[in-house]
């Protein structure tokens, strides 16, 4: 990653490494990514940090043939919208899964992978991807 992006990446380590979002104790709602205020309860909301489930279900998916910079050699790859079962949705790359198993409704689990490593002398960005379980 570019050196000037390190602080932004580092702040998101809890989210990327642990799927840490937050939970409003007032209305018992989970949020991912985390946010400062509960949109339901506003000032009455009480937000606490919370790790999201590490498993989920594919709601929708697509196969990417033209990747953005940094991903152009990884194509074709799959991106999926995943329902974590707590009303939180997450967009993630699907890896380590045979093509025929990637479909709507498939159970997936979180894995830890490199997200970006294009600069040989730069810092490596790690984070979550999912695989069909």
């Amino acid at each position: 990653m570019a050196d000037n992006a390190i602080a932004i990446h580092w702040r998101r380590y809890p989210e990327r490494y642990l799927l840490r979002g937050c939970h409003c104790e007032t209305c018992k709602t989970d949020f991912f990514p985390g946010r400062l205020f509960c949109p339901n309860c506003r000032r009455k909301g009480k937000m606490v940090s919370k790790e999201m489930p590490r498993t989920g279900k594919i709601v929708s998916f697509t196969e990417v043939f033209v990747g953005p910079i940094g991903f152009q050699h990884e194509t074709p790859y799959f991106l999926a919208l995943i329902d974590l079962g707590n009303k939180c949705m997450i967009l993630s790359q699907i890896v380590d899964s045979p093509k025929e198993k990637i479909k709507t409704g498939a159970q997936v689990k979180k894995v830890f992978r490199k997200i970006q490593d294009t600069d040989h002398e730069g810092a490596i960005a790690y984070g979550y991807k999912f695989k069909v379980s």
């Binding site: 990884e74 890896v95 894995v111 830890f112 992978r113 490199k114 490593d117 490596i124 790690y126 991807k129």
Partner: peptide, 16 residues
């Protein structure tokens, strides 16, 4: 190891 895997990702999975 696939190109998004390295000693750190393997270690994290083993540790988990």
């Amino acid at each position: 190891a696939a190109w998004d895997e390295d000693t750190a990702t393997i270690s994290v999975e083993a540790a988990r």
